[in-house]
Design a protein around this nucleic acid. Structure first.
Length: 157
DNA sequence: GCCAACGTTGGC
DNA sequence: GCCAACGTTGGC
């Protein structure tokens, strides 16, 4: 089993919206970056777990966990001219963009903020991709030890 | 709203 | 294949 981190702008889609969604499940659409696409399409497996990260907001940080419940399949929003994520270059017969389905596992009792995560950048989170210089990936791998550490942070104060 | 750091596009 | 111009991301 592998671990991941997935970013979403809460203004576009927040963890509370996921909690209200039917079956607490949603398709993770709109990823338009090839590196992230490859992970969604090829590497994420059913049963994998991912952190839900709120980006571009007042307190950016990790707000909970989700489970991958459906593996990579074509992102249909790329085919819809009226959709914000429409991409004329994605052909239904040869889709360029992919998505997975995720189900809410747990909303953390508190936000583990980016600011807090950064305070461990020289220690437990030394190689955390989120903290790497210039990192803009919206989907990225997390190691097991990083996962455990951040989960334990979310339980404490 | 600003802007640095990227990624993509397209002319040549 | 180079690279300038442009668009996006996302913290602050």
């Amino acid at each position: 089993m592998n671990y991941w981190l997935m970013k979403s702008e809460p203004e576009a889609f927040s963890i509370d919206e996921l909690a209200r969604a039917p079956g607490k499940t949603t398709c993770w659409d709109g990823v338009r970056n090839y590196q992230a696409r490859n992970m969604l399409r090829d590497e994420m497996k059913k049963g994998d777990l991912a952190f839900f990260y709120h980006s571009n907001c007042e307190v950016p940080g990790i707000v909970g966990t989700v489970e991958i419940v459906r593996e990579g399949y074509p992102d249909h929003t790329a085919f819809d001219p009226d959709d914000h994520h429409f991409d004329p270059k994605s052909d239904p017969d040869n889709p360029r963009w992919f998505m997975v389905d995720v189900k809410l596992k747990k909303k953390f009792p508190r936000v583990v903020s980016l600011r807090e995560l950064k305070s461990y950048a020289d220690r437990e989170l030394r190689d955390f991709r989120l903290l790497a210089k210039g990192n803009r990936l919206s989907v990225m791998p997390v190691t097991k030890s990083q996962w455990r550490f951040i989960e334990s942070l979310s339980q404490g104060k």
